[in-house]
């Protein structure tokens, strides 16, 4: 996984923690440093306290105990689900500006490179030029495209797109939805409707509902995940804009509380900068935390 080592390489000022974690027993200095690292990585107070407690009690060396705790919280890596027959339908959901459109564009690129037939569906009829943005991605990746007109019912657009994938015998329909704050009741109801209409077009769809999270988000990401999961059956997380400064530690709490696997990470601005999630590499990157905010 070359991208991962690159991320770790971008992180500056590591070393301190490494040296401390290699100690035999968790002393006060180590625990304090560990706490700072986790908190600065947006892991959150609750999850951090739980992890530190486990490290303190563990008879193992702190380094091992810490890695084990984090990996356990994150769960194993989970592959993207494929439909047994017919098109696989993937829905991207999340708050505004997390990178839903870009993630689907990159996913289309990945699938096209594997030789699949893909259609991109712009069920974001709210944000100005959202459909145009996805259409550019369709052209770039050689995917098909279905979009609605501004203000059209997004559930109807989603239905049309997925139905087209079925009719044309395509492998994948990637459905983009408008960004919405999880506190907007009406918009969450709209999302449920999109989810239902996709299921009417192809039975068993959507096969993947990916909640797109910005790696720069703090503890509100946990509340978001909770609310989106309540609204629709989210199947996995995508961590975007993971660049070394934004470390996305909130997923540690989310993954363990809601039992949601992280499936993909966006690591850069290039078309191929979307990778399957590698928990071990991620934990290493999370712990090599620079601390320039001192």
């Amino acid at each position: 996984m070359p991208r991962w080592s690159e991320i770790a390489g971008r992180l500056r000022g590591l070393g301190g923690l490494r040296a401390l974690v290699s100690r035999r027993r968790p002393d006060a200095e180590l625990l304090e440093e560990l706490e700072s690292t986790l908190l600065l990585g947006d892991v959150g107070v609750t999850a951090t306290e739980r992890i530190l407690e486990a490290v303190r009690r563990s008879p193992d060396e702190p380094a091992n105990a810490l890695r084990r705790e984090l990996l356990q919280a994150l769960g194993g890596g989970a592959p993207l689900v494929r439909a047994a027959a017919g098109p696989t339908v993937t829905l991207a959901v999340g708050v505004n500006g997390t990178g839903k459109t870009t993630t689907l564009g990159k996913l289309a690129h990945r699938y096209r490179a594997e030789g699949r037939q893909v259609i991109l569906v712009a069920a974001d009829t709210f944000r100005a030029a959202a459909a145009e943005q996805l259409e550019v991605w369709a052209r770039r990746t050689g995917a098909g495209f279905v979009g609605g007109s501004p203000g059209q019912d997004p559930a109807a657009v989603a239905y049309d797109g997925v139905e087209a994938a079925l009719r044309r015998g395509l492998d994948d329909a990637l459905v983009d939805t408008a960004g919405r704050l999880a506190t907007e009741h009406n918009l969450m109801a709209e999302l449920r409707k999109i989810h239902r209409s996709v299921g009417r077009a192809v039975s068993g769809a959507p096969h993947e509902v990916l909640l797109i999270l910005d790696a720069g988000f703090g503890q509100n990401a946990v509340a978001q995940a909770r609310r989106f999961t309540e609204a629709v059956a989210v199947t996995g997380l995508v961590l975007t804009k993971l660049d070394g400064i934004s470390r996305g530690g909130a997923v540690v709490g989310i993954a363990s509380e809601l039992n949601l696997p992280v499936k993909l990470v966006g690591t850069g601005e290039g078309v191929s900068d979307l990778e399957p999630f590698d928990p071990e590499a991620y934990v290493d990157a999370l712990l090599d935390t620079p601390d320039t905010a001192r």
Binding site: V95, T183, G218, I245, R247
Partner: peptide, 29 residues
């Protein structure tokens, strides 16, 4: 919704291009 990285990001913009003030978005969440 930005987490701990807010400080480092702002410092970077300040140091590399200069920074006078902030607009905070998505406060309706």
């Amino acid at each position: 919704m930005t987490g701990q990285a807010a400080v480092e990001v702002a410092q970077q913009f300040r140091d590399e291009v200069g920074l006078d003030g902030v607009i905070l978005t998505k406060l309706d969440g």
